[in-house]
């Protein structure tokens, strides 16, 4: 005959603790894995802008990033940006260059699309629309959320790549063509996958869609 042994009080407490711990670990694993969990979503239907023609919506994994363009500062760059958006050429563009809490960069149309990433050539891709002259100004400060046109080492090589600063970067003042600023969704950009202190990001996050606000 099998004799049943009653668990002591301390054993019961330990058992309950282990159950609680496993539930906590299980839920944490799934909740924390979702990097977008605590990111505020920007509901477009609730947003209004004075100049909606110069507002664009970049949709990434964690939500919508709303960008206001400054055509009065850099008319050619903004015009190019709008063309690329209207042609949906930024859709699928990877954030292949990311420096944690510093900047994110995307927009290589040719070699930086998530469906056709070419790490041997990334950063050198062309949009097919030609190069632009740099539109530099010492009056624009690259503060948190500034959007700038990326370029090669030389000036006047802007094409389609852009970066967004995640902190103030005073050294960029007068170095890059300013395009605009993020008005909503900076916390979303902070969730974009980094390269863990490396220049390039392997298996990067990417732009799902990039549209003008009016077209949404």
């Amino acid at each position: 005959m099998i004799k049943t042994i009653k668990a002591s009080k301390s054993e019961k407490i330990l058992f309950i603790f282990l159950i609680c711990l496993s539930i906590f670990a299980f839920t944490s694993f799934f909740l924390l894995k979702n990097k977008c969990l605590f990111v505020e979503k920007n509901n477009l239907s609730k947003l209004n802008f004075n100049d909606p023609d110069n507002i664009a919506v970049m949709n990434v994994e964690c939500g919508n990033v709303i960008i206001e363009f400054y055509p009065e500062i850099s008319p050619k760059a903004v015009e190019r940006f709008k063309i690329l958006i209207e042609k949906k050429m930024y859709d699928g563009s990877a954030f292949y260059k990311v420096s944690e809490n510093t900047f994110v960069q995307a927009g290589d149309i040719e070699y930086g699309n998530i469906n056709n990433l070419d790490y041997s050539k990334i950063g050198s891709g062309k949009s097919g629309l030609g190069l632009l002259k740099s539109e530099l100004t010492n009056d624009f400060k690259f503060t948190e959320g500034s959007v700038g046109f990326a370029r090669a080492t030389e000036f006047d090589t802007e094409d389609s790549e852009f970066f967004i600063t995640l902190k103030e970067i005073p050294i960029y003042q007068g170095e890059y063509t300013p395009i605009g600023k993020v008005v909503y969704g900076l916390d979303i950009l902070n969730k974009i996958k980094t390269g863990n202190k490396a220049i390039y990001v392997l298996r990067p996050d990417y732009i799902k869609t990039f549209r003008m606000f009016n077209s949404n």
């Binding site: 420096s99 510093t102 900047f103 790490y119 050294i171 863990n196 202190k197 490396a198 220049i199 392997l202």
Partner: peptide, 22 residues
């Protein structure tokens, strides 16, 4: 190629100044 790329890029900090003047 991927292995070589990872090896090469893992030693350089991608900060804002590096991005500008390498």
């Amino acid at each position: 190629f991927l292995f070589i790329l990872i090896f090469h890029i893992s030693h350089v900090n991608a900060d804002e100044i590096y991005n500008l003047i390498k």
